[in-house]
Amino acid sequence: MKIKKVSRMISIDGDAVLNEALRSIKHPARRLFLERSLTLGSLSLLSGCAIVDEDSVEHALRRVSRFNDEVQAWLFDPKLLAPTYSEAMITRPFPFNAYYGEDEIRQVDAEGYRLEVTGMVADKHSWTLAELRDLPQTDQITRHICIEGWSAIGKWGGVNFADFLARVGADKTAKYIGFKCADDYYTSIDMPTALHPQTLLTLSYDGQPLPPRNGFPMKLRMPTKLGYKNPKHIQAIFVTNTYPGGYWEDQGYNWFGGS
């Protein structure tokens, strides 16, 4: 008797499952992330299992993404350099990519520009573009890898970011460096990546002052991270232990975004 009862309990009511799936397709109050992340394909995948609701799927996926942040931090070798290339291998033209179109590129006024540096730093003065250009400069020809899959080789020049952080007396035990940009973009990175020798406070592209499409007047270039972690038009840098998130990261992109 007992065995029979159990087998009836675990048998799946096909109609109930279908109704549940149809209800969730029609339901108007689904959250943005779910509308975007759960297509009909995934619903049919999940519908065999009525106990899985969409909120717990989202929650589980985001937890794995945070676990992947930790794995990437553990894998990250602070001394390992990304490959560098010859001038001849530079991708021309270098692709433009942002959360907006190329016709909406922000124009930042060079004269009025001030880079704000705040948070866990000793020197909180704001930097003019001339002051940044007076610092020792270096350049690199490296591969930029986009989360979309494509990659392109470019030549960036500017100030070694670890040197800059040392100059402003940044607390290197802090967890995060956050960036706010003139195009309302924002993102944040981990301290070990900030101190990586190829992380560059970038002021030039291909030997010329950084063009607006590449993030004038200043961007952060990291060949150890995916493109969306490399903010353009940076206006403010802050050193913090409070997780700052990011424009894409808050919508579901992986935070570490390492390469």
């Binding site: 992330f33 509308e35 975007r36 992340s37 759960l38 297509t39 009909l40 394909g41 995934s42 995948l45 589980a60 996926l61 985001r62 794995v64 993404s65 992947n68 986009c146 989360i147 979309e148 899959g149 494509w150 894409w248 919508q251 579901g252 992109y253 992986n254």
Partner: peptide, 29 residues
């Protein structure tokens, strides 16, 4: 589909994730 290279793309109806960020969350889980 976000950056195809073989001149083909996949019908969205047979994909999982809804958008690039969602697909990557599924893939990397």
């Amino acid at each position: 589909n976000a950056s195809p290279f073989f001149g083909i793309t996949f019908p969205v109806a047979i994909t999982l994730g809804g958008w690039l960020g969602g697909a990557i969350l599924w893939h990397f889980a």
